[in-house]
Design a protein around this nucleic acid. Structure first.
Lengths: 193, 193
DNA sequence: CGTCTATTTGAATGTACTCAAAAGCGGTGG
DNA sequence: CCACCGCTTTTGAGTACATTCAAATAGACG
């Protein structure tokens, strides 16, 4: 599978020598997922960080009542996976599955650690990646704390206009922290006026 | 001001040479804050990342209606500051102020970048710091999405038992995403039964 | 002691949820 | 090509969790 995308991604924040590129790409495990396939399953320990090369995945967790809650949509160029399980080696509380046919690269934890020890400069890439991720998480937190579901949906539509085309509404509702029924009512108001 | 705490913090994830320690600590700007003092003010560009050496700060943002929303409490050993403003050099939407008399170190952005270029191994510390921070953010997100205010308060009390001793309840309410009035009612139920 | 802010209380209200059912939509097989 | 199946989305009525507003009480600080 083509690794040029992920290397280009790395080089947005870092210039790499051939040796580093080679070490990096040779650690990756390519996989093709069909719509609905699991990239990782809740209950198991997350042993890899996951890069989305094409397509779209979502991570969600299932609460005590059996309701799913979408943590993240990950499209082409994004990383995903349960960092808590990855870090602590405790069983994951998230599942990650493909919303469309997708290509992903798994970066196994052991290989990632070896890479980072061998090429400390690679730390920079993940530092920046995580730094940006915190900004996104805080943005979402603020949205949930300070605006109504109505506005959150509007903001979501503007921010990720393409997602709505292939993500079922019930998952968008979950991401926004509301029920599918209520999202439906919001949409009715919005279009029907 | 004593830099042994922050160095010990760094060395939990990384072994440092004297030269690195010295460069790091000499970039820090120490400050003592009194209760209520601002460490950073919304509207200005965040030019430093902030380490809490002692005491407790909180970051919050003020929405269009004038309501405050607590993003984070930062106690001794934590970093805080608006990473979005820090990264993008856009005006901050957060203010950060001292909840108790506190000692902080400012790490100016320029110095941080110079440090990271000079000593790429330092990237590792911030990579791990941010990685853990994402886990916390996701945990909080999940809490907000899946449990009632009642349970969120109980979980918060267990997780941060000391904070309640000196953080006004209205800020805890804000952090939990509820009104002070409602938190009061939760507390009445809990104690009075 | 007085002032200022934080917390508590209560009543009325609103936003979003639950439950149940109907309608829409896409795929599959006869 | 139509009929059927499973899943998603929509609708509506009743309900619950949490908010708003107003006022009383409690605490902290000079």
């Amino acid at each position: 599978m083509d690794t040029s995308g992920i290397i280009a991604q790395l080089e947005r924040h870092l210039s790499l020598e051939e040796k580093e590129k080679l070490s990096f790409t040779s650690a990756l495990i390519a996989a093709r997922l069909k719509q609905g396939d699991f990239a990782e399953v809740a209950g198991k320990i997350t042993s890899s960080f996951i890069y989305v090369n094409s397509g779209c995945l979502m991570s969600y967790f299932t609460d005590a009542d059996g309701s799913d809650h979408v943590i993240q949509f990950a499209v082409s160029g994004w990383w995903t996976g349960d960092l808590h399980s990855f870090t602590s080696a405790e069983p994951s509380i998230y599942s990650t599955r493909a919303l469309t046919d997708s290509e992903v690269f798994y970066l196994p934890k052991d290989d990632m650690e070896t890479l980072l020890e061998k090429f400390p400069r690679l730390e920079r890439y993940f530092r920046i990646l995580f730094q940006n991720s915190i900004v996104s998480h805080q943005h979402r937190l603020i949205q949930n704390l300070s605006v109504t579901a109505d506005q959150r949906y509007e903001n979501f539509s503007k921010r990720y206009p393409t997602l709505e085309q292939y993500v079922p509404l019930k998952y968008i509702a979950s991401y926004l922290g509301i029920t599918p029924e209520f999202l439906s009512k919001i949409r009715r108001k919005r279009s029907g006026n």
